[in-house]
């Protein structure tokens, strides 16, 4: 995956398109999209634990649109502060909140109010009071320096116009020794210039 957009790609339009498509996913997770959603996809193709997913509110898992599985890179750890960058409706966030337990904190960051509202509702429904969801952007995380133990992100940072800025933000908010459990899409082949300019593909 290219680290930056083509210089003439309209990044404001890209951001608007991303907000629009994920608001649609939040409102209609069963709608027609060119990527998979939901807990069956997560279990079958990404190796999520079905029993753990069954314990989550249906609304949180139904809008899941991740592309890999950060939870398979080891336990997050009881008592940890974990941030999910681009938490969406909160499936990974709620799994992380269960992992850190009542003495830990799980903070979700999402730029789409529709998704953030779903994540908050999911946390309430699951009885998880160690969850907080903030509106924010991966390019400028609403978190202090060296304030978290673990950052997770799933299928989100590939949507940012300059990924190196997003990675620096992750580095900034992690404490020394903190872990970045990063799940995303990558390309094995170079994209043509026309394909790189296709906003529909950036938003998928």
């Amino acid at each position: 995956m290219a680290i930056t957009c083509p210089v003439d790609l309209d990044t404001r339009r890209l951001r608007d398109e991303i907000q629009s498509i994920y608001a649609r996913v939040a409102g209609d997770p069963a709608g027609d999209f060119h990527f998979h959603r939901g807990p069956d996809y997560a279990a079958e193709l990404l190796g999520y634990d079905r029993a753990a997913l069954a314990g989550l509110p249906a609304d949180s898992a139904g809008s899941f649109a991740g592309v890999a599985n950060p939870h398979r890179m080891g336990p997050i750890g009881e008592g940890a502060v974990v941030v999910d960058v681009g938490c969406g409706a909160g499936m990974d966030l709620l799994l992380a909140a269960r992992s850190v337990g009542p003495h830990g904190r799980a903070i979700g960051v999402d730029m789409t109010e529709a998704m953030a509202s779903r994540a908050r509702a999911g946390a309430r429904s699951a009885g998880l009071d160690n969850v907080e969801v903030r509106i924010g952007d991966a390019m400028s995380l609403p978190l202090g320096d060296a304030s978290v133990d673990v950052v997770i992100s799933n299928g989100v940072l590939n949507l940012t116009p300059d990924k190196s800025v997003a990675y620096r933000e992750v580095y900034r908010v992690l404490r020394p020794g903190g872990r970045f459990l990063y799940a995303d899409i990558v390309l094995g082949a170079e994209l043509s210039e026309a394909t790189r300019r296709d906003i529909d593909l950036w938003t998928g």
Binding site: A68, P176, R179, I185, T195, G204
Partner: peptide, 19 residues
Amino acid sequence: KERLARKYDVMGVNVFARK
């Protein structure tokens, strides 16, 4: 988009890193 994903070898991956 499966065909396009195959063409460009697009995959989901887990990447670990530590500060």
